[in-house]
Write a protein that binds this DNA or RNA. Structure first.
Lengths: 384, 384
DNA sequence: TTGACATATTTCGGCGTCGAAATAAATAAT
DNA sequence: ATTATTTATTTCGACGCCGAAATATGTCAA
């Protein structure tokens, strides 16, 4: 399927600076075969030989590295109110980043052209564009390259992303859901680099999971996998409402902000009290948490408890090695994750289960765009 | 990895009676290659040519079939109180079955020798044994071939199944968890034959899930995947207890029987009322349900509601095409499944999700043993 | 019956990968 | 320095699978 050339390049991305023999062992290929293809890739300008590494005795290994000048990839992502773009050279180093806000009034067409603007904003002149990845919220049809539906943008139905951008840029375009894209970013650049089985828990305006199993991103039968925002939660924690509460209504960023606003309206004290209701953002929340604001910490802990239980359920079903928490709150680190870890451990049965490592993503707000770019990087193949 | 020969045989098992050209298309191989290997397999006695099928015009296809006399496979499974064994000839037809009960006093050694007895009981004289699959409850270490732990049998810790049976029978031995084994049975012989993504929900004394994704049985990082018996359930349905109730304590066969006993002790009327408390079995329960006993139906419905919600959660996370319900209650069919389906649909969000088909296994009580045998069948390779 | 057509299977030359042996390039010992 | 040792890379013959063309075996129409 994937040509040996591209597999070799992929492998080299994982462990930068490997020699021919290391590649051969890692990929279970004959050294002679690796030599053949490496020579070809060097000739084509995608790889180059670097320093020699000497290990005690024997002929030293010639380290191979990716040639940054071979071209670049672009990733674009958008979510509720924000669009980000990033470009990576052939050796996976960041070239440029770009950020722009989306308006509540933006229609599908507007957003589509902002995506194109994003690609152009991070483009490098003089180098060759090799591929573009696009990560969008809502449901996507990966095979047909169509963004199927997203409820918060007017007209965002069956948007032919791949076709449109393909005609404009003339390079391979890859479409993916944005939480899954964040999982890919963790797999290629983040904490899950060595991980075959992990879940990326994306907590933003909604909640979703990017599931990587046996080293492969898992999408499900209809590309709906990971939509755990709709999970029903134990009633004890639900607010007084008719139907049982859903995870997204209890522990998403949007939900936490709403809960804070409600608590403050009810007279609870907080560093955020002065502000007009609904006038504060995630950044305000984070700042208050770091400064030790009791109300904010309490709400974060409540959300953490629920998320920890959710992680426990996913872990019992899938037994992943790791759960990477992503989204703006991940930057709070242990301040946000500790209650999650405790809840997860508390609910995990002693036998027949193991609590996964729960870690905060270190990739920041560009992780979705990074994952989209990674998608293009990953699927790149040398043109003949 | 798997030799082409064995892949061809596998493929032929899926669609019995395919021609060379059909195999070539299905496996994306060159017709010439398929011809080469098929000839070799015929020569070795594993395959044989059957009737010719004519489709309107053209040279007719020569149908290929598995040679039943090429050898046989054995599968053994045990659960709480029962051990089953089955043998299959090379063309996947059942040769013999065997069943025996386990006693509460049986130790690991006793059970191990009962497993061996099971293999011998279904063995066919004159034919060649090609492999044995063993499915056990609790946790297993597939790679090392060791049954790690099961709490309900004394001394069942780190039992070297593969080594022990391997020495005794001199053929490849395969070890698997029994719920996962049931999933394999569904994949090869049951309703999930054409299914790439499905979950087998095993409801017996405990509750577990066998997860098949992208056509592959998924085991998890530490072989713990599918242990959903420990899932915490919404408190509203929990009995008055200190800690939140677990799925297994609410909807397993054992739990339902306990609930029935408790209700009858509290004076509820039922066809089972006459019997001594705890004196009735699953079979009694099934009979009463078929006869329309109100109390039993009510309890089944309550369990179904909870299981339906569980299916919904799994479906949101993994978006499988199908959920196969297995275990003794599955034989009740819609009587047991209908409440499950309704609950699953009710809890599934309209967008971003699709409720999987929920079906009852048709494989009966030998499905675990069947799956174990399938494991051996599946991994068989022609000896040179 | 015969020829035209359709489709399955086999034949055969070519390319890609492997495995073993040869060669290269370093260190360690004499 | 020189030689032995160790390990990486390259060379080269072998084999497996592919693809296109040839061949086999049927149906259908005149």
């Amino acid at each position: 399927m994937a040509s040996l050339e591209s597999s070799l390049v992929q492998r080299l991305r994982l462990s930068d600076g490997a020699s021919r023999i290391e590649l051969a062992r890692a990929m279970e290929l004959a050294p002679s075969t690796v030599g053949l293809y490496v020579d070809r890739l060097i000739e084509q300008g995608f790889l180059r030989e670097g320093a020699k590494s000497r290990l005690s005795a024997g002929r030293p290994r010639v380290l191979l590295e990716l040639n940054p000048k071979a071209g670049y990839f672009v990733g674009v992502e958008f979510e509720a109110r924000q669009l980000t773009a990033i470009s990576l050279d052939f050796s996976n180093r960041t070239l440029k980043r770009h950020r722009q806000t989306l308006r509540a009034t933006d229609t599908a067409d507007t957003v589509l052209s902002k995506i194109e603007e994003g690609v152009e904003a991070v483009s490098a002149r003089g180098k060759r564009l090799l591929g573009v990845g696009v990560a969008v919220p809502g449901t996507v049809d990966n095979e047909r390259g169509i963004a199927v539906h997203y409820e918060f943008i007017r007209g965002w139905q069956d948007v032919p992303i791949v076709e449109t951008l393909g005609e404009k840029f003339g390079v391979p375009i890859f479409l993916e859901n944005n939480v899954r894209s964040m999982a890919l970013a963790e797999r290629w650049f983040g904490l899950a680099r060595e991980c075959e089985n992990f879940i990326c828990l994306g907590i933003r305006s909604g909640i979703g999971a990017g599931v990587v199993l046996s080293g492969q991103l898992y999408r499900g039968e209809n590309n709906f996998a990971g939509e755990i925002g709709g999970w029903v939660c134990p009633a004890e924690t639900a607010p007084e409402s008719s139907s049982p509460a859903k995870l997204e209504e209890l522990a998403s960023v949007r939900a936490i902000l709403n809960q804070l606003a409600a608590a403050i309206a009810n007279g609870r004290k907080s560093a955020l009290s002065g502000r007009p209701l609904r006038g504060f953002t995630v950044d305000d929340l984070s700042r208050a948490a770091r400064e030790g604001d009791q109300l904010v910490l309490e709400k974060l802990q409540q959300a953490g408890e629920i998320l920890g239980r959710t992680i426990c359920q996913m872990s019992l079903l899938l037994n992943p090695e790791m759960v990477v928490v992503a989204g703006p709150l991940a930057e709070l680190g242990d301040l946000f994750l500790e209650s999650m870890r405790q809840a997860a451990v508390r609910h995990t049965p002693a036998l027949h289960a193991r609590t996964p490592r729960i870690v905060a993503s270190e990739l920041g707000q560009y992780s979705g765009a990074l994952g989209a770019a990674a998608q293009a990087v990953h699927q790149w193949e040398p043109s003949l």
